[in-house]
């Protein structure tokens, strides 16, 4: 398996632990991740304010991948949603495709989009392309002593129509199954579909942090030892901002927040130092003691 690695804006600066763990897990599983220096912002931040700019930025990245004839492995759920949606739009709308390609300096019929390149979130690749059986066969250190709460976030699942309704956006299962493959228990908790609030962090911090806190409360009530997620923006809300949330409400969560490749990496027997755990804001030492 060979993919162009699309890091997006947040992961390489705010969630390097996620990037480190993904690269390590890919290496162990034999997935080749190719860095393309021409990848830039996916265009998601512009969708709500200037549709055309967002379309052009997303299309440009897709054209970079298509030129290299590489499917795209994405770390960020918002980037996944944006690139998937634009990839579909341009594949099915000939007029729009030619307009966009022309504006980006491409020739008529030069790019196909759609079937030419697949855009997939790294967790979806692990679930669908690597598969649970393969993962299960490679587990070295089952994390059977721990219980975690899966946070799917929004754009990994929604809008479901751009993902061909591949799983129920109200009751998803892929991350839970991937967690259980590691030997850990995935606990159910209320309001699993709740958004992390990152989308409004720059607009209204109070709302964003309140929203994140609601989920921290729900996860704490579930008795989980940690939260497991797959989007760097969600990581910013629950890991980076957890101390601020605690400070503003006198609450104490001390809830480790792991990216799924970190959990999988442990179970695959990879040294936690290589999985970027020291970059986790909420220290996961006690959590790791339970696992290792």
């Amino acid at each position: 398996m060979r993919y162009a690695l699309f890091l997006g804006c947040t992961a390489p600066t705010k969630s390097r632990n996620y990037e480190l763990a993904t690269r390590e897990v890919a290496r162990v599983l034999g997935i080749e991740l190719v860095d393309l220096p021409d990848f830039e912002c996916c265009g998601f931040p512009l969708k709500s304010v200037h549709h055309e700019s967002h379309l052009l930025m997303a299309a440009r990245n897709l054209m970079v991948a298509e030129r290299e004839e590489l499917d795209v492995c994405v770390l960020c759920s918002a980037c996944t949603g944006t690139l998937t949606e634009v990839n579909r739009q341009l594949a099915h709308n000939d007029v729009l495709r030619e307009q966009v390609v022309s504006k980006l300096g491409g020739g008529k019929g030069e790019y196909v989009f759609g079937s030419a390149i697949a855009v997939k979130h790294v967790v979806r690749i692990l679930y669908e392309n690597v598969g649970l059986d393969t993962l299960r066969s490679k587990i070295q250190k089952p994390a059977s002593a721990i219980t975690v709460a899966a946070h799917y976030g929004c754009h990994y699942l929604r809008p479901s129509e751009i993902y061909d309704d591949c799983e129920d956006p109200e009751d998803p299962h892929s991350l839970d199954e991937l967690i259980e493959v590691t030997g850990a228990k995935s606990v159910r908790y209320s309001e699993r579909e709740r958004c992390c609030g990152a989308g409004v962090l720059a607009i209204d911090e109070e709302i964003a942090l309140s929203l994140a806190q609601k989920k921290l409360e729900d996860v704490r009530s579930s008795g989980a030892h940690a939260m497991v997620l797959m989007c760097p923006f969600c990581g910013v809300m629950y890991d980076e901002n957890q101390a601020r949330i605690e400070a503003r409400s006198d609450a104490t969560y001390n809830l480790p927040v792991l990216y799924y490749p970190q959990l999988l990496g442990i179970a695959l027997g990879i040294d936690p130092k290589s999985l970027g755990f020291r970059l986790n804001r909420v220290k996961a030492d006690k959590f790791l003691e339970r696992v290792i």
Binding site: S48, R158, V200
Partner: peptide
């Protein structure tokens, strides 16, 4: 809007 798409779904 946080773009969570729950309303859309």
């Amino acid at each position: 809007c946080s773009s969570c798409y729950i309303c859309t779904e």
